[in-house]
Amino acid sequence: MSATVTPRELIIARAAQEIADGMVVNLGIGMPTLLADVGVARAGVLLQSENGLLGIGPYPTEDEVDPDLINAGKETVTAVAGHAYFDSAESFAMIRGGHVDLAILGGMEVSAGGDLANWMVPGKLVKGMGGAMDLVHGAKRTVVVMEHLSKAGESKVKPACTLPLTGRGVVDRLITDLAVFDLPRAADGSRELVLVETQPGVTVEQVRERTEAEFRVAGADGDSEPVVAS
């Protein structure tokens, strides 16, 4: 077995720590869906699927596969004991109404002010926002997971997003394959990008080199080293 850990595996392993017992969690499609196993296994956690299920279970066995039971990524799933089904308006009433504890979403770009872009690249890629624009305003906490650099090697953590926004000032925490950033909200509503952890083997200097946005390092006067992930 290879000892190499992929960037996505690093990100997912760190993001798994965000899911606490008893939470109601919505996982975005793509990379966040890889956290479903963690959510299913965690005590009392209920995964909310915006297509109308509270209580996503593991993937089905062959015998359990049901075209009428899918997650928001259109994958066949099962439902845990105690699950509930509902329509899409009810689903987003839960989301908008602040009844979901945590949303973990993928990202294309995150800005130092907490803006998120993850739904389209003008002229190239049309996906649509799905439920992300509702989730970023409705969930009590929004965590974004994404690779730090684009395929072209450019920082996806930007002073300002260049892509159309999903939400302005909505990201509470950003987890990349290099680091973890918090984006605390000030009294005036603005946010600040703060490095709180580096991934194993990554130095603060390396994060700086690969991050286009300015950030503060957590600790007194911004000078002390951040917590290094174990």
Partner: peptide, 29 residues
């Protein structure tokens, strides 16, 4: 392209006789 919750609510409102509503989804985008 419409945020999913907004799309659901626009249909719900249409069926329920509510002409329009305010939502935070999409602000600043």
């Amino acid at each position: 392209l419409v945020p999913q919750g907004t799309l659901a609510e626009r249909l719900r409102a249409g069926g329920a006789g509510i002409p329009a509503f305010y939502t935070p989804a999409g602000v600043g985008t």
